[in-house]
Simulated scan of single mutants.
Amino acid sequence: MTLLDSAVWGGKFHSDGWQDSPTEQPVTEPATGDRLGTVGLATAADVNRAATRAAEAQRGWAATSPQRRAAVLRRAGELFTEHAAEIEDWLVREAGSVRSKAGFEAGLAIGECFECAGLPTHPQGEVLTSEDARWSLARRRPAGVVSVIAPFNFPLILGLRSVAPALALGNAVLLKPDPRTAVSGGVVIARIFEEAGLPAGVLHLLPGDGAVGRAVVEAPEVRVISFTGSTPVGRAIGEQAGRLLKRAHLELGGNNALVVLPGADVAKAASAGAFGSYLHQGQICMTTGRHIVHESLVEEYTAALAAKAEALPVGDPAREDVALGPIIDRRQLERVHGIVTDSVAAGAKVAAG
C-alpha cells in the first residue's frame, strides 16, 4: 500500500481516525476532467465534535516531552522525503502544478518539518525586569487548538507551514483545505503525521464548504486561526475573530507590481516579468499583477514579454513537459477570461495569446 492509497481515505475525512462521510466530493484532475477519487466532506457538526476532541488531546500532546514532539516532526520530514515522488504526482494531477513547481513545493514541505523539529527545544520564556529583589519570569504556553484554512494554489506548503509549527509547539490543529485540493493539501498532511506517530485526536482533517470554514473559526475551543486566501474572505474571518477575541493570522490577495526603469536590461526584465506572471498559471498571491514600465521602454518591453509568453508550452503537466498547466477550475478560468475581455473593451490590446 502506498502512502496515499485511496483505500485509506476515499470518501472519508480524518478526525480521530478516518471517518466515513455521507457526503463525498469527486477529486478532479483539472487538466483532463478525469476523476482521481472521492474525498469525504465534513459538516459544521463534525467540526464541533473535532474541536472538542482536539482540546482533550491537546493537553496530553502539550505535556509530551519536547524531544518526543521533535521526533514526530523529524519523522514527518523523513516521510515527506521518502514519498516525495508520490506527493509530487498528486500536486501535478490534482492542483495542476507543473512538475518543477510540484518538486519545489514538496521540497519546502521537507524543510518545513525539519525546521519545526527544532521548535520544541527552543527557550519558552524570558526573564523580565523587576524593581524588586526577585526574579520575574514570562513563560510561553501552547495556545490550545489552532484552525488552519489553506488555499488551492500551493495547497501542501500553505497548509503545512501553519500545521507543523503549531504541532511542534504543543497545539492541536483543525485543518480545512480547499475542497478542490483536499488530497494534496489535506490527505497528504494527515497521512504523513499519522505515520509519523502523532497521537490520535491532535490533528483533524475537515474538508468542506463555507459552513465548515465558519465552524473552524467559531468553535469555542479554537484560539488561533491561520488563513491564506482571498481578501474578502480574510476580512470576514478577521472581523469574526475580533468579535470572538481570537488571534487571526491572515495572508490575503495581492496586486503586485514589477517596475522597469530606464537603464534596465529589457530581456532580463521581461524574463523576470514572465516568471512573475505565469508561474502556476498566475494563481499565486505574489504573482506579478502589474508591469509598470517607463515610457521609453514600453514598446521594447511589451514585445519581449509577448515573445516570452508565446514561447511558453501549454498542456497537461502530468503527460508533457510544459511551462503552463491548467487553471484550477472553470470558475477561475472565466474570471481570468473576464479580466482580458474587460481590458480589451476598455482599450487595451492583446499582444500575445
Rank of each mutant, 00 (worst) to 15 (best):
Q240P: 00
G77N: 03
G103I: 05
K176L: 14
S147K: 12
L312D: 08
Q58D: 04
G60R: 08
V8H: 06
S162A: 11
A272G: 06
Q19W: 10
V224L: 12
F114S: 00
D132S: 12
T181N: 04
V233P: 06
G107L: 01
P232E: 06
A345M: 04
S277V: 01
A182C: 11
L175Q: 06
G125A: 08
R68L: 12
G96C: 06
F152Y: 15
G210K: 06
S296E: 15
V216G: 14
A274Q: 07
E320D: 11
A85M: 02
T341G: 01
L333N: 00
I87M: 00
A303R: 15
V216N: 13
L79K: 01
L91D: 04
L169H: 13
S97C: 03
Q58F: 09
S100G: 02
G125V: 09
A31Q: 15
E24M: 14
A50E: 08
L333Q: 10
S97D: 03
L206W: 03
G197Y: 14
L36T: 03
P142S: 00
S184F: 05
A348L: 01
A307W: 00
G118K: 11
V202I: 11
G96R: 04
P155I: 14
G37S: 08
G125L: 11
V259S: 04
H122F: 12
K349D: 05
F275H: 10
D89S: 08
Q332A: 10
S230W: 01
V233H: 07
D321S: 09
V146D: 06
A303D: 15
R290T: 03
E251G: 11
A31I: 13
L324W: 07
G33D: 06
P151Y: 10
L198V: 11
S271G: 08
C285P: 02
G282V: 05
D342F: 05
V148Q: 07
I149C: 02
S226G: 02
G185A: 03
E82A: 15
E221F: 02
E78P: 04
G197L: 13
A303L: 14
A264M: 11
S6T: 04
T341S: 13
G10A: 00
T302R: 12
S296A: 15
K12L: 03
A307C: 05
R53C: 00
L175W: 10
P26W: 01
R319L: 13
W135R: 14
G289Q: 12
T231R: 14
P220W: 07
A95I: 05
L252N: 04
L41Q: 13
E112N: 05
P22D: 12
D20Q: 14
A70D: 05
V344N: 08
E195T: 00
T38W: 12
A346D: 06
D209S: 05
E29W: 10
P151I: 00
D178P: 05
G238Y: 12
P123F: 07
G60W: 02
D265Y: 01
L312R: 08
L203N: 09
A106N: 02
L244M: 14
G185L: 02
T23K: 15
I328K: 04
A76P: 01
F80Y: 11
I110Y: 04
Q240T: 15
V293A: 01
H294G: 06
L73C: 15
G111D: 13
K101T: 05
L175C: 12
E94L: 03
I328P: 08
E56C: 01
P199Y: 09
L158R: 10
T288A: 15
G315K: 12
A102L: 10
